[in-house]
């Protein structure tokens, strides 16, 4: 392969890698504005949430682990059935 083809390939890869590095450098630390809003909200409500669900529709513990000590779906008859709760397992639909 002659001409500028190889140089273009290298340039594209370097540009992609540079872009990715910039994105990671920018997005790795928590944004101060977002952190301040999150803290202000939790200060207002006295600390609520913390679980992987945004409602208490299936179990209160998934919304806020402090609200309950067990999930009803943990008693599923399937071995390790608790893991198949929609809140315990990423990616499976809950209905």
């Amino acid at each position: 392969m002659s001409g500028r083809g190889p140089a273009i390939v290298v340039a594209v890869v370097v540009a992609l890698a540079g872009g990715a590095a910039t994105v990671v450098a920018t997005c790795a630390p928590r944004a101060p504005g977002a952190a301040a809003r999150s803290e202000a909200f939790q200060a207002l409500v006295g600390g609520v949430g913390g679980g992987p669900a945004t409602t208490m529709a299936r179990c209160a513990r998934a919304f806020d682990p402090r609200l309950d000590d067990a999930c009803a779906f943990r008693t599923h008859p399937t071995p390790a059935g608790g893991a198949y709760c929609a809140h315990g397992l990423a990616g499976l639909p809950d209905r």
């Binding site: 999150s38 939790q42 600390g47 949430g49 679980g51």
Partner: peptide
């Protein structure tokens, strides 16, 4: 990060 805030500003 948000879960840690929920703990930090909880009782």
């Amino acid at each position: 990060d948000q879960a840690r805030d929920a703990v930090r500003f909880g009782p």
